[in-house]
Amino acid sequence: MKGLIGKKIGMTHIYDEQGLMIPVTVVQVGPCRVTAVRTKDRDGYSALQLGFGTRKPKNVSKAVRTHVAAAGYSEHVPERIRELRLAEDPEQSVGDVLGADIFEADEFVDVTGVTKGRGFQGVVRRYKFGGGRASHGGGWTRRGGSIGMCVNPGKIYKGRKMPGQMGNVQRTSQNLRIVQVRQENNLLLIKGAVPGANGRFVMVRKAKKK
């Protein structure tokens, strides 16, 4: 298992060696600095704690500042700190810097991010309900219709699709192919779309199912 914290830059398209146009999302991964190491012996599980981005030291608590200072952060502190769960105890130690070069082109990754928030939405937009008829005496154009049965079962089943908050939840896109790795500025060009708005943080991990 390997992974990095990154920032979604945006989308564009590039041409591959066959001249085909491929839609890609540009993700800036790293440099990520290891801020802590979790081992099975001491913590009961294996993980790497990674730091990414920059933040002014005055804007974080002293506890965070001291914690990351041990990993070599002096001028600034990381904007994001996340743990990456591993199957085995990590080889890296605190202070190591990881970059885009841990990935290769044509590798598959899972990308986790927080999707764009769409606010409180009705069932037509949120769940692609058909709604009622617009003409011929419709009367219930964008409403959900019946939500259940009668006296039997006498309740609404849990998980019933109804209006509510749409988006702004964590989601993972699986099995996305890395088209290109640009080590010089830690960029990954990943085929297809990635959850979230441009500039938001994402976690790029090696694909679980490939």
Partner: peptide, 13 residues
């Protein structure tokens, strides 16, 4: 547009 995206696009022209 973002400077990084711009640079990637320019290379393709």
């Amino acid at each position: 547009m973002n400077a990084i995206i711009d640079k990637i696009n320019k290379e393709q022209l």
